Simulated assay, not measured.
Amino acid sequence: MTYEFSNDSILIYVELDSQGKSIEWKWDAGKGNWINKYSSHRTNCDVYGYCGAFGICDSSIRPICSCLKGFKPRNIEEWSRGNWSRGCFRTTPLQCQRDNKNGSGAGQGDDGFLEMKRMKVPAFPYPSSISNGQCKDQCMNMKNCSCVAYAYDDGIGCMLWSGDLIDVQKFSASGVDLYIRLPSSELDKEKSSKVIVITTVIGGIVVITMSTLFLWCRIAKYKGRNKKRKKIKHQFSSENIGENSIGVKLQQLPLFNFEELAAATDNFHHTKKLGQGGFGPVYKGTLDDGKEIAVKRLSKASGQGLEEFMNEVVVISKLQHRNLVKLLGCFVEGEEKMLVYEYMPNKSLDTFLFG
């Protein structure tokens, strides 16, 4: 083929290589060099039969070549090295092929078709003038079950393929729907894979939802606990004690939560009990950091209320003496009230006075 331009200053030549790749070069007088004006191949998938028979080429994934569903590479070693030219072969014969071999007739009912969307159809189809709805039936009824795939395009009509499927390519957009003939066993595997994927996705959504809900509850509980602690400290410092130095100390006094005090005392086990007073029982405990504490738990039968409890806190916070135990913090929630002191390993004063 030759052609020429009316403008003699335009210099162009076209190069066609052994793989069918066409490149158009144009002379750039300013750069003094030939530039690539057009190339028929954007990716290796545009090379004819790049993935061999029954191979599918997809430039958006790596490796770009894979076997169609129900097929595997003819040579695993060459395939793993990136040489896909020998293509793939069918792993399970079609049911009609097995029936013909056994002389039992065409059992086409056990074969089906796998739909593949947005495809560049294989080379060398057999065109047919029938409508889209009859394309599948014609493929199923072809003699000796020679039809291995079909497709339908509005501009072309029904297309049928027999023998090897060559130059199959996956497009990101456009293309037509290609239907590959497979035995029912392979189609069942495809359905099972879809069920597993759907189940996995649903399970993942459920786990994420439950985890998010659990985390939200923990955050809400933490915020509620901090809000309650601030309220208690404000009550101690403002309503009952006033804005003085004691109130400032109480605002700085740590507030423990019930869970950490229960864990420190083995859920207030009787073996951890140090003694009993008018206020209530006292338990020995160990915090997570290893610090030993004494927890005085207000007895509901003691008759002491919030006022008495706060009075004891105020009195202890006023007193500072090397022979008196230090108040480390407290806990107030509903009817449950506790004071947390430093632990005295040498027992209390009354033991030495009264034996």
Results as ranks from 00 to 15, higher is better:
298 L>F: 00
254 P>T: 13
166 I>D: 00
104 S>A: 13
330 C>V: 08
177 D>M: 11
200 T>F: 12
229 R>N: 14
292 E>F: 10
355 G>V: 02
149 A>R: 02
73 P>G: 09
299 S>K: 01
118 R>P: 02
310 M>H: 05
275 G>K: 01
2 T>H: 10
271 T>Q: 09
212 T>Q: 14
109 G>P: 00
211 S>N: 14
87 G>E: 04
318 K>R: 15
68 L>C: 01
264 A>Y: 07
224 G>W: 01
195 V>W: 15
70 G>P: 01
89 F>Q: 09
55 G>Y: 04
165 L>P: 03
36 N>A: 11
1 M>S: 15
232 I>Q: 09
96 C>Q: 05
121 V>Q: 07
307 E>W: 05
102 N>L: 12
272 K>V: 11
287 L>G: 02
21 K>Y: 04
40 S>P: 08
274 L>D: 00
76 I>V: 13
166 I>Y: 04
28 D>M: 03
337 K>M: 01
17 D>L: 08
154 D>G: 06
1 M>P: 12
203 G>Q: 09
197 V>I: 15
288 D>S: 11
235 Q>S: 13
166 I>Q: 00
144 N>T: 07
185 S>D: 00
288 D>V: 10
284 K>W: 01
292 E>S: 13
46 D>H: 04
328 L>Y: 03
254 P>S: 14
85 S>P: 01
51 C>H: 07
35 I>H: 04
214 F>H: 11
9 S>Q: 10
329 G>C: 01
69 K>I: 15
229 R>S: 13
162 S>D: 01
200 T>I: 14
312 E>R: 03
180 I>P: 05
21 K>Q: 05
235 Q>E: 15
316 I>V: 14
317 S>Y: 04
71 F>R: 01
338 M>R: 06
123 A>P: 02
279 F>K: 02
9 S>P: 01
18 S>H: 01
191 K>Y: 08
162 S>R: 06
234 H>R: 15
242 G>I: 14
109 G>I: 09
177 D>K: 11
87 G>R: 05
295 V>D: 03
312 E>Q: 02
207 V>F: 12
338 M>V: 08
268 F>L: 09
105 G>T: 04
294 A>M: 08
16 L>F: 00
81 R>A: 14
202 I>A: 12
295 V>Q: 02
297 R>C: 13
127 P>A: 02
324 L>S: 00
228 K>A: 15
51 C>S: 03
71 F>H: 06
174 S>A: 15
75 N>C: 14
192 S>W: 09
266 D>T: 11
43 T>N: 00
263 A>E: 10
124 F>I: 03
115 E>Q: 08
20 G>L: 01
48 Y>W: 07
180 I>V: 09
198 I>N: 09
117 K>H: 06
97 Q>A: 13
296 K>D: 05
189 K>M: 14
270 H>W: 07
263 A>R: 06
6 S>G: 12
188 D>L: 12
104 S>C: 11
333 E>V: 06
138 Q>S: 09
311 N>F: 06
195 V>C: 15
5 F>I: 15
4 E>Q: 13
222 Y>S: 11
87 G>W: 06
348 S>G: 08
245 S>G: 15
